[in-house]
Amino acid sequence: MTAPLPAALQLCVRRRPGPLGASVQVSLRVPSDVGCIEEVVDLLLRHCTHRAWLCRRMRFNLRVALAEALANAIVAGNREDRSKSVLVEADLSGDQVRVEITDEGIGFDPAGITAPLLPDELDRPNGRGLYLIQQLVDDVTFNDRGNSICLTLRRP
């Protein structure tokens, strides 16, 4: 028996002209396949970073934070169950980029995770993802259930 093919990405992009440049809304349905992460990050960056204030470092930070949040949603949230998907909704308008990533998992308590930053913890391979996201973007919030994370990057 052959394995089922992964579902395709479903992308919807809306652009509206505005005084600070076009605002863009992107909606993307992503299969629970870690092999899609790179492509999804590239797609989002292509559509949501055409603002002069988004310098190289900010684009890099957004790239890493998105890869991180997608990996959490696919691996920890959906447990790589191919029957589940991840919804990504991005909004570039005015002076900020906002990306919401929602999985179909049971959610988690972000307060229960601590990054291994002390010298005797550095050998721990896990636990840095959420910490990295929090360091790389301006604002990180979760819904009550803990299955949806919202990342915001603002103009400095």
Binding site: R63, E68, D123, N126, G129
Partner: peptide
């Protein structure tokens, strides 16, 4: 290399050990 995520960093930690 373009970028590394926390899993990549974790893999390097495991390799180092």
């Amino acid at each position: 290399t373009g970028y590394i995520d926390s899993s990549g960093l974790g893999a390097l930690v495991s390799i180092s050990k």
